[in-house]
């Protein structure tokens, strides 16, 4: 669905599959072909998915309709928790904070990645394997480790202020404790996290674009912008969809980075749905409200992911 077979290189021809399936259906299954045994292969995994994923999700939906502190009996409140999300400015702010993180986690790295891809040579780069392993390093280590590293960068006498000092802008701000700057500071950690990923995706994707397209465009007198707009961008559609899915969904469901760096503070200036679900359910005894946030967050993520996969399949304009 959202996974993009176009960028699963060595396993490629998924397109064969539907064709084979159609043929199979019209001819009926071959004699002796196993059919019902398939269920046996599925049973163990299906059981686990039902017990640990689907039933909990249904339970979350139920909890979203009650008021419950996790201890005493729950009281049914219907859609009350959802009405709160729409009317309570503090709850609405959670989603606005998410939106700001989407800009930093997704829009910024993808734009940067595309810009670099457009400016750079389209030939295979020597030593790309080496660069790739460094650029991918942030994806490998735990967010806990990343948080340890970044909390000093943002400290009052940390690297961020040290670097700003070089251009005379060190105001001695403790970035993560500042009402204005804490959320963008978290956003920059996300941007740092995704930029390498996007660069690697786009730089390898651009090498798959047929060079004769560029040659033809040049003969037709296309300028650099037109080349980018009409050849590079459509050619990278699959990679852009992958990058969008990973980064946008990552931003929407972010919990670790907020929990580790600011715990939603100062005040509620960095609270996001993922963090608030945790805080309400396990800190403040508002399991019902937490569940309703979880349902809304899940629906948003599904809608966004499906929209992105639609975009990736849209024919070239």
């Amino acid at each position: 669905m959202v996974l993009n077979t176009a960028v699963l290189p060595p396993q490629a021809p998924a397109s064969i599959a539907p064709a084979a399936r159609r043929r199979g259906r019209s001819r009926g299954t071959a004699p002796g072909e196993p059919r019902l045994v398939a269920y046996l292969y599925l049973v163990p995994a299906l059981l686990m998915v039902v017990v640990f994923v689907l039933l909990p999700v249904l339970h979350t939906v139920y909890l979203s309709l009650v008021k419950w502190d996790g201890v005493t009996a729950a009281t049914f409140v219907g859609l009350g928790n959802y009405v709160d999300i729409l009317t309570d400015p503090q709850l609405r702010a959670l989603f606005l904070h998410s939106l700001e993180l989407v800009f930093f986690f997704a829009v910024l790295p993808i734009s940067l990645g595309l810009l670099i891809t457009a400016l750079l040579s389209r030939r295979a780069v020597r030593g790309m394997t080496f660069y790739r392993s460094i650029l991918f390093l942030p994806q490998v280590v735990s967010m806990v480790v990343i948080a340890v590293a970044w909390q000093w960068i943002y400290a009052q006498d940390g690297v961020a202020n040290q670097l700003l000092g070089l251009i005379g802008l060190d105001r001695g701000i403790a970035w993560l404790g500042d009402f204005t700057w804490a959320l963008p500071a978290i956003g920059i950690v996300g941007a740092w996290l995704s930029t390498g990923l996007c660069m690697v995706l786009f730089l390898s994707g651009v090498q798959k674009i047929d060079t004769s397209l560029y040659e033809a465009a040049r003969l037709d007198g296309a300028n650099a912008w037109q080349e980018f707009r009409h050849i590079t961008l459509p050619g990278l559609r699959a990679e852009i969809a992958v990058a969008l899915t990973l980064t946008v969904v990552g931003a929407l469901k972010s919990f670790d980075v907020v929990y580790l760096l600011t715990k939603g503070g100062p005040g509620t200036s960095t609270a996001v749905p993922g963090y608030e679900i945790f805080a309400r359910a396990f800190g403040r005894g508002e399991a019902g409200s937490a569940a309703s946030l979880a349902v809304v967050l899940t629906v948003i993520i599904f809608v966004v992911s499906i929209a992105i996969s639609r975009f990736s399949k849209e024919p070239e304009v």
């Binding site: 669905m1 959202v2 996974l3 599925l42 995994a45 299906l46 998915v49 039902v50 640990f52 994923v53 689907l54 909990p56 999700v57 339970h59 979350t60 909890l63 996790g70 969904v249 929407l252 469901k253 919990f255 749905p273 993922g274 679900i277 945790f278 359910a281 396990f282 399991a287 937490a290 569940a291 979880a294 349902v295 967050l297 899940t298 993520i301 599904f302 992911s305």
Partner: peptide, 24 residues
């Protein structure tokens, strides 16, 4: 139908199950 049952978990954030998961 069964495959979609599995696909559901591919997009779902862990936050969607964590609250009842703990209590259950």
């Amino acid at each position: 139908l069964l495959f979609f049952t599995f696909l559901f978990g591919l997009l779902m954030p862990f936050e969607a199950t964590i609250v009842p998961l703990y209590y259950d």
